[in-house]
Write a protein that binds this DNA or RNA. Structure first.
Lengths: 111, 111
DNA sequence: GACTAACGTAAGCCATCACTTACCTAACGT
DNA sequence: ACGTTAGGTAAGTGATGGCTTACGTTAGTC
């Protein structure tokens, strides 16, 4: 998961993922969409491949990259965990506050 | 979203989020769980607060941090988008391969 | 009013990172 | 065989990031 989230931290890499999300693409094809050099894209693709967020396939002299969603599994489950726990915690806090408010209101009535 | 995913890229910050996921905690309380200095934790908390992943509440001289799941909304939706698109793309690729295999098999039969 | 506890912030340091240019290899066309 | 196209890799560089120590500030405590 560490590799995945670190790979996603870079905006260019997220854009690359957006590009290969639907169809596989060659390196120079991808590089043509950015204003950085082709080697830079190659390095980004290496990071994405190490994080298992893309697949590579050789076809002659070209290399075709495509998305590999399974690489997100771990991160997704961690986020879901955080999401649910934090939300339920928020809920009990709100409930406690409402309870305190009701108590204060009844106190005011007794007065 | 950029701020959120960059904040999550750091393992210490993810652990901090795990700590404040259920209950709010003070800075020194959090810092006691790590082997880095308290200022380092303060800086991590600043990054998390800027990314809107935690809430802060002052109580006297102490500051209580708690999780703020809404900060993940954007990142989650991006990931879901990527996830669904990439998976459906994988599906059509597999189907195309199966189709090619069936064609090859019928060719072999004709031979 | 002095002391202390709990934090935030500033400055400096070292590691990591993204990018560039230069180079190399492998597969194709002629 | 030879040039060319596609792309990975190496080395160097500037910027960013996480850490530390030192210091400043604010709210309680005696």
């Amino acid at each position: 998961m560490d590799a995945a989230v670190r790979a996603l931290a870079e905006p260019t890499r997220r854009e690359i993922l957006d590009l290969v999300r639907h169809t596989e693409r060659t390196v120079s094809d991808i590089a043509s969409e950015f204003d950085v050099s082709r080697p830079a894209i190659s390095q980004h693709l290496r990071v994405l491949a190490d994080a298992e967020l893309v697949n590579v396939r050789s076809e002659g002299t070209r290399r075709l990259y495509s998305a590999r969603p399974e690489g997100l599994v771990e991160l997704r489950s961690w986020m879901d965990q955080f999401w649910n726990d934090a939300l339920s915690n928020l809920k009990v806090e709100v409930e406690r506050e409402q309870w305190n408010e009701r108590k204060a209101a009844s106190k005011r009535r007794k007065k």
